[in-house]
């Protein structure tokens, strides 16, 4: 691995977005294939942060900063990556229900899913049910992940699931839910295909859903 790739990986593990951006730009100037930057630096970086989290070495601030550094590096690479064909294991659309602004968990999930090889499309927060349905029709994802972080907004998930059925897109779509107030029982009640306990669990479940 080149010195630059090593520094990108290290910057992501350490959650330093400035260095992650600086070294990613440098890697492109050095002519390193952006796909290799992803494979050898950014993804291993976020995976390592996930391992450290799992092992109780990293806590939320560390993971969040790693996710931010990963996002910053990927932003630099995105224009280059769009010009080359990259393999993904599935398309994942993610958003937070209407009336809910909490996206801390979502940011980590996005970083971890991207690291795991998913193409992740972030719809943002406070997304009305109708918009979620429209975007599913338009983007045709393999999985839609919907988050909610309040006990009142989580009830909107019932409407989302109903609307997905009524609009005829549910049959070809796997639905995952997550967020602080949710549980496996709630996921079963609303008829979701899976519940992500946290970001690491969400990645495992997403892989399972697409048969990976």
């Amino acid at each position: 691995m080149s010195d630059t790739l090593g520094k990108i990986k290290q910057a992501i593990v350490e959650g330093d977005d400035d260095i992650a951006v600086e070294q990613t730009e440098k890697s492109l100037q050095e002519g390193i294939n952006p796909v290799e930057v992803v494979k050898q630096a950014t993804v291993p970086g976020i995976e390592r942060a996930g391992e450290l989290w799992k092992d109780n070495v990293y806590f939320m601030p560390d993971v969040v900063l790693s996710a931010e550094a990963f996002k910053a590096a990927m932003k630099v690479l995105k224009p280059q990556l769009s010009q080359v064909r990259t393999d993904t294991i599935g398309r994942f659309v993610i958003g937070v229900v209407a009336g809910d602004m909490h996206d801390l968990g979502k940011s980590i999930v996005i970083a971890m899913l991207t690291g795991a090889g998913f193409e992740v499309i972030d719809l943002g927060v406070d997304i009305p049910t109708e918009t979620l349905i429209e975007r599913v029709k338009e983007l045709k994802p393999d999985i839609m992940g919907v988050g909610c972080y309040m006990t009142t907004t989580m009830l909107i998930l019932k409407n989302v699931m109903k609307a997905l059925k009524e609009s005829g897109v549910r049959d070809n779509l796997k639905v995952m839910i997550g967020g602080v107030p949710t549980t496996q029982q709630f996921a079963d009640e609303v008829g979701a295909d899976a519940w992500g306990k946290d970001a690491l669990d969400a990645v495992d479940k997403a892989r399972e859903l697409i048969g990976g």
């Binding site: 009336g99 809910d100 943002g124 927060v125 907004t153």
Partner: peptide, 14 residues
Amino acid sequence: MIWGNDSMPTIDFR
């Protein structure tokens, strides 16, 4: 802030 119809108002973190 963001106000939902049926939920506690929340900070607009955007």
